[in-house]
Design a protein around this nucleic acid. Structure first.
Length: 925
DNA sequence: TTAGTCACG
DNA sequence: GACGTACGTGACTAAT
C-alpha cells in the first residue's frame, strides 16, 4: 500500500474509558464549587492537554465504551458480569469528560455492541494498513495484543511506552501470542475463565513450547504432568471461548472514518470558559502560558503560540492583610513559585531576610522579613536612606506563621529554583515544605550538563529575559553588602523577579518533561532525593578537631624537614610548591633525563614523571613526592577541615550538588567530603578523624563492584553475569577466563592485569590508556584487549551500539532512563571524538550506578523508620553510604541498609553491599 | 582566572 | 598515518 497525500502518519488513539477509571482512583477527591466531583475530569483534562501539546501525531481520537453489553456477552453471558456499577462519584463525570474532549475539538467515538478496545483495534489496523504509526494511549493489558512494529502503547500516568519488550515482560510472549496466553490464564477482572490452575507463567511456558493455543490443545495429550494434561483436555473448549473473549475485533463496521480524526486546532476561549466553569484555574493559567498579562482578567484571551511580553507587577507586602491575600491566591491557584532571600550562601549560617511568591507570570510579591533600615556602608550618615524612610515591615514571626500552612499544604505545588536551599532555610525556621517542584532539577534532567542550570542562564535561554543580577543589587568584592541591607524597592524588583522567573521556567520545563520522556527520572530519582539531601546536609558529620590539628602540626614539621633536604639536593633555594620552579631545577639545573613539556610549554612534574625519576635512583624527586603528599593532606584536609567546623553544631556540613555532573552523580563541596584520603597510610589518618557522637558508631556500606556489574548487565556479558552470580573474586575469574589459567595458584600479576582491563572497560578502554596504567607496551596492551573481547564478545557490541546511540541522539541513556549528554561525539577532530566516545561508553555505567544508589538513598529513611531505627544518613561517596547509628541498633541497621541497597534495582546480576562499623570512618571499612 | 597537581569513586 | 587518550569530580597553589 502506498501512502497518498493526506494519509495519516501518526495516529493517537486514546482509551478514554480506561483513563477515566485510572484518573478517578488515582487522584484525590476534588469537587467543583457546586459539589460536582471532578477529579477524573481534572486528570483527563491535564492528560489530554499534555498529549496534544507534546505529540507529533496528525490524527487524534478518544474512544469510549458505549454501554455495559457487547457482542462478547452473546458468546459468554458471564463476561464482565460481576463488575460492580461505576462509583457514585464517577457517574456524573462521564458526560463532563465527553465535554472536555469536545472542548479540545478532538473527535470521540463510541459504538453500541462493541467495546472501546475493539474500536481501537479496528482503527489501529486501518492506520497501519495505510502506513501510519499508531500510539494507543492506555495501559490496559488487553490492548497489548495490538503492539507491533508500527503500534505502541503509551501509559501516560507512568510515562512509559509499551512495546514488544514490555509485553514480553508482562505476558512472557511476543504481542502476537498474547491472546493465546490470555485464553489459557484467563482474566478474573473481566471474568474471562481461562483454564483453571493455569496462570500467566505456565501459559507463557506452554505457548512458548507449542507455538499457539490450537497446537497446544491438539497435542495436549503429550503433556507430561498428569494434572496439567487433564485440565487442558477437559477445558479445551473453555480456552477457545476465552480466546474469543480476549481477541479484539479488528473489523468493526465503524461509521467514523480515520480521516475524520485529523488533528484540528481548538478555540482557546471555548476551552478556557469550560475549564473555568469546572474550577480548573491552574489549567487555565497553564493554557495562558507566558502570554498572560497579569492585569487582563480572563487570562486565556491571548493566543498561546505568540508570546506577548509579560507586564510584570510586583507588590511589596508589608501588611498582614496583603500577605493573607497572597497566601489565599496561591492556595486557590494550587501552584506557587517561592524563593527565599538570606544573608549568605550557607543555609545553616544564613539569616532569612525575605520571601517572594509568584502566582502567575508577571504576578509576584516580596515579603521582607529582616531588612536593616540603615544605609549601606560607605553612605553618608546624613543621606536619607529610602529603606529607613520606607514602610514598616512585617515581623518574622507573623510572616512565618502565615506562610507555614501554605508551604505544608500538599495540595499546593511549591516551585523553587534549587529548592534544596530554600527548604534548608525554612527548616532552620522550623517550617517544612511538602509538594514541590524544582526548576533547576527539571532543567538538569532535560538538558544534563549541556549548559548550566542557574536561573539567570535559564531565563535568558528559555524566556529571552535578562534578569537583575545579584551583583547589581549587592555589589561584588569588598564592597558587597548582604541582602538585608538592600533598599526595599531594589529588593522587591530583584526578589519578586526571581519567583516570577521560576514560575515561568516551570511552565516551559515541566511541559518538556513528558515529551522528552524524563518524567520518571525526575519524579523517581531526582525530586524525592531533595529532602534526603536536606537532612544529610543538616546532620553533618563530627570531626575530631584536636586530632586534625595534631596531624597538621606533624605534617608541617615533616614538610619543613623535607624542604631543607630538597633544597640541599638542588643546591639552591626554590619554592617546592611551584611546578614551574621545580621543573627548572630538575630538567635544567640538574639536567635529569626524560623531561616532557606540558601543552603550555612548562616542564611536566606530575607524580608519574617524578616516580619514574625516583625509580632511577634520584633522591630529590622522591622527596618532592613525599612533600607533595604531606602538603596536599595538610592544605586540603587537616587545616581546611578544621576551618569548616560549624560553631553551632560542632560538625562539618558539606553541600551536595544535585544538578552538576554529566553522568548523574552527586558532587560534594565546601568541603568536599567525597575525596577524603584512604589510599595511603598517611591519608587514612585523616579518615580516622571523622568520628561518631558518643553512644553512636559510624556505619559505612558500599556496593561491591557496582560499575562492573552495570557493565555486565547493560552489555549482557554472559561470562561476567555468571561470574557475579557465582559470587567469587571477579578479577581473578576474569584473569582465568581471558588468560586461560586456573584461579588456584594464579600469578597475582595476572589478576592485577585483569583488574586493570575491567576498569578500562568502564572508562571506554584504549590500548594506550591500559598500557600507561600497567606500564606495558601499547602492543601488549592491545593483545590483552583483544583477548578480553574474544572471551567476552558482547562487550564490543555494547561499545559500538553505545557510540551509535550517542551519534544518533547526542546522548546515551542509563538503564533507568537518565540522559547522559555526549558533546563532541561528531567533532571533526578525531581526538575530541574519541574522548566523547569513551565518555559515552562510561555514561550508562557510571550514570546507572549513580541512579541505583539514589534509589537506595530515597528508600532508606522510610525503611529505617519502619523498623523504629534512629540511624541518620550522613554522606554519600558514589558507591558508599555513611550513617551514624546508635550503638544498640548496629546490627538491625546494617541489615536494613544492606537490604535496601541490594534491592534498589533488579539487574541481570545481583547487587551486593558490604558494611562495617567503627567509632571513626577509618575504622568502619 | 587558568594551569598544574592530586585527593576520591 | 597522525592525532593524544583511560571515566567522573573539587581544592589548593602558583603564575598570570
Amino acid at each position: 500500500m502506498t501512502a497518498v497525500a493526506g494519509d495519516p502518519q501518526h495516529v493517537f488513539l486514546v482509551d478514554g474509558s480506561g483513563f477515566i477509571f485510572r484518573a478517578f482512583h488515582g487522584l484525590p477527591a476534588m469537587s467543583r464549587p457546586d459539589g460536582t466531583p471532578v477529579n477524573a475530569v481534572y486528570g483527563f483534562t491535564t492528560m489530554l492537554l499534555k498529549l496534544l501539546s507534546d505529540t507529533d501525531a496528525d490524527h487524534v481520537a478518544v474512544i469510549f465504551d458505549a454501554g455495559r453489553l457487547s457482542f462478547r456477552n452473546d458468546i459468554y453471558p458471564e463476561y464482565k458480569a460481576h463488575r460492580p456499577p461505576a462509583p457514585e462519584d464517577l457517574v456524573p463525570q462521564f458526560p463532563l469528560i465527553r465535554d472536555v474532549v469536545a472542548a479540545f475539538n478532538v473527535p470521540s467515538v463510541e459504538m453500541e455492541g462493541f467495546e472501546a478496545d475493539d474500536l481501537i483495534a479496528t482503527y489501529a489496523t486501518q492506520a497501519v494498513a495505510r502506513g501510519a504509526r499508531v500510539t494507543i494511549v492506555s495501559s490496559d493489558k488487553d490492548l497489548m495484543q495490538l503492539v507491533g512494529e508500527r503500534v505502541e502503547m503509551l501509559d501516560t500516568l507512568k510515562n512509559r511506552t509499551i512495546r514488544a519488550p514490555e509485553v514480553l515482560e508482562k505476558f512472557g510472549v511476543a504481542p502476537d501470542k498474547v491472546v493465546d496466553v490470555q485464553a489459557l490464564c484467563g482474566d478474573p477482572t473481566d471474568n474471562v475463565p481461562g483454564v483453571p490452575g493455569i496462570g500467566v507463567k505456565t501459559a507463557a511456558q506452554l505457548i512458548g513450547e507449542y507455538g499457539d493455543l490450537d497446537s497446544l490443545l491438539a497435542r495436549a495429550s503429550e503433556i507430561k504432568q498428569p494434572k496439567r494434561r487433564e485440565t487442558l483436555l477437559n477445558n479445551a473448549e473453555l480456552a477457545r471461548i476465552s480466546r474469543e473473549l480476549v481477541r479484539l475485533k479488528c473489523d468493526v463496521p465503524v461509521t467514523e472514518s480515520l480521516d475524520s480524526f485529523a488533528k484540528r486546532p481548538f478555540d482557546r476561549q471555548v476551552l478556557a470558559d469550560f475549564l473555568a466553569a469546572q474550577g480548573f484555574k491552574s489549567i487555565v493559567a497553564r493554557l495562558g502560558g507566558s502570554s498572560v498579562t497579569p492585569t487582563a482578567a480572563p487570562a486565556v484571551t491571548a493566543p498561546v503560540a505568540v508570546a506577548a511580553p509579560v507586564v510584570a507587577q510586583y507588590e511589596l507586602v508589608t501588611s498582614v492583610e496583603v500577605l493573607e491575600a497572597w497566601v489565599a491566591e496561591a492556595t486557590r491557584m494550587g501552584t506557587v513559585a517561592f524563593d527565599t532571600e538570606t544573608t549568605g550562601l550557607d543555609p545553616l549560617r544564613a539569616e532569612l531576610v525575605g520571601v517572594s511568591l509568584a502566582t502567575a507570570p508577571g504576578r509576584a510579591c516580596y515579603i521582607p522579613i529582616k531588612h536593616d533600615a540603615g544605609p549601606a556602608q560607605g553612605s553618608l550618615l546624613l543621606d536619607p536612606s529610602p529603606a529607613a524612610a520606607g514602610p514598616d515591615i512585617l515581623g518574622r514571626e507573623v510572616t512565618l506563621a502565615k506562610l507555614a500552612p501554605l508551604l505544608a499544604d500538599a495540595s499546593v505545588l511549591k516551585i523553587g529554583h534549587n529548592i534544596k536551599y530554600d527548604m534548608q532555610v525554612m527548616a532552620q525556621a522550623g517550617l517544612t515544605v511538602t509538594a514541590f517542584d524544582d526548576t533547576m532539577l527539571l532543567s538538569y534532567v532535560l538538558d544534563g550538563a549541556s549548559h548550566g542550570h542557574g536561573m539567570d542562564e535559564l531565563a535568558k535561554l528559555h524566556l529571552d529575559h535578562d534578569t537583575i543580577k545579584f551583583a547589581d543589587v549587592c555589589g561584588t568584592g569588598k564592597n558587597q553588602i548582604t541582602f538585608d541591607r538592600v533598599p526595599l524597592d531594589k529588593a522587591l524588583a530583584y526578589a519578586a523577579e526571581d519567583a516570577d522567573i521560576t514560575l515561568r521556567l516551570h511552565g516551559v520545563l515541566k511541559a518538556r518533561l513528558l515529551a522528552e520522556r524524563m518524567v520518571t527520572v525526575y519524579e523517581t530519582l531526582e525530586r524525592p532525593l531533595v529532602p534526603v539531601i536536606v537532612a544529610m546536609e543538616a546532620a553533618g558529620i563530627k570531626v575530631d578537631r584536636t586530632a586534625l590539628m595534631a596531624l597538621s602540626a606533624e605534617f608541617g614539621g615533616r614538610m619543613a624537614e623535607l624542604e631543607v633536604q630538597i633544597q640541599t639536593l638542588a643546591g639552591r633555594e626554590f619554592n617546592v610548591g611551584s611546578p614551574q620552579q621545580l621543573g627548572k631545577v630538575l630538567f635544567e639545573d640538574m639536567s635529569l633525563p626524560g623531561g616532557k613539556k606540558t601543552k603550555t610549554g612548562q616542564w611536566g612534574t606530575g607524580a608519574d614523571a617524578l616516580e619514574e625519576l625516583a625509580a632511577q635512583g634520584h633522591d630529590l624527586p622522591a622527596r618532592v613526592l613525599d612533600w607533595r603528599q604531606l602538603s596536599k593532606l595538610k592544605g586540603t584536609y587537616t587545616d581546611a577541615l578544621v576551618a569548616q567546623i560549624n560553631g553551632r553544631t560542632g560538625r562539618v556540613h558539606t553541600s551536595f550538588a544535585l544538578a552538576l555532573t554529566t553522568t548523574g552523580r552527586l558532587s560534594s563541596s565546601d568541603p568536599n567530603l567525597q575525596n577524603i584520603p584512604i589510599r595511603s597510610e598517611e591519608g587514612r589518618k585523616i579518615r580516622h578523624a571523622f568520628i561518631a557522637e558518643p553512644g553512636h558508631v559510624l556505619l559505612s556500606a558500599d556496593y561491591s563492584q557496582i560499575e562492573l556489574r552495570l557493565v555486565a548487565h547493560v552489555a549482557g556479558i554472559k561470562g561476567l553475569i555468571q561470574a557475579f552470580h557465582d559470587g567469587a573474586d571477579i578479577h581473578a575469574i576474569t584473569a582465568a577466563q581471558v588468560f586461560g589459567v586456573p584461579v588456584e595458584g594464579m600469578d597475582p600479576m595476572l589478576r592485577r592485569r585483569a583488574k586493570a582491563i575491567n576498569f578500562g572497560i568502564i572508562y571506554g578502554i584504549s590500548a594506550f590508556g591500559l598500557a600507561q596504567q600497567l606500564g606495558i607496551s601499547n602492543g601488549e596492551a592491545k593483545s590483552y584487549i583483544d583477548a578480553y573481547f574474544g572471551r567476552y564478545p558482547e562487550i564490543r557490541d555494547f561499545m559500538e551500539r553505545t557510540k551509535e546511540e550517542a551519534r544518533a541522539n547526542g546522548f546515551v541513556l542509563t538503564p533507568f532512563g537518565r540522559k547522559v549528554f555526549t558533546p563532541g561525539i561528531k567533532d571533526k577532530n578525531g581526538a575530541m571524538r574519541a574522548f566523547a566516545e569513551r565518555a559515552a561508553i562510561n555514561g550508562p555505567i557510571q550514570g546507572g550506578a549513580a541512579d541505583i544508589i539514589k534509589r537506595a538513598m530515597i528508600r532508606l529513611p522510610a525503611a529505617l523508620a519502619a523498623e523504629g531505627l534512629k540511624a541518620r544518613l550522613l554522606l554519600q561517596v558514589h558507591d558508599e553510604l555513611v550513617l551514624e547509628v546508635p550503638v544498640a541498633e548496629q546490627d538491625a541497621t546494617r541489615a536494613v541498609v544492606c537490604r535496601v541497597m541490594e534491592s534498589a534495582a533488579q539487574l541481570d546480576v545481583p547487587l551486593v553491599a558490604e558494611a562495617g562499623f567503627g567509632t571513626s570512618w577509618g575504622d568502619a571499612h
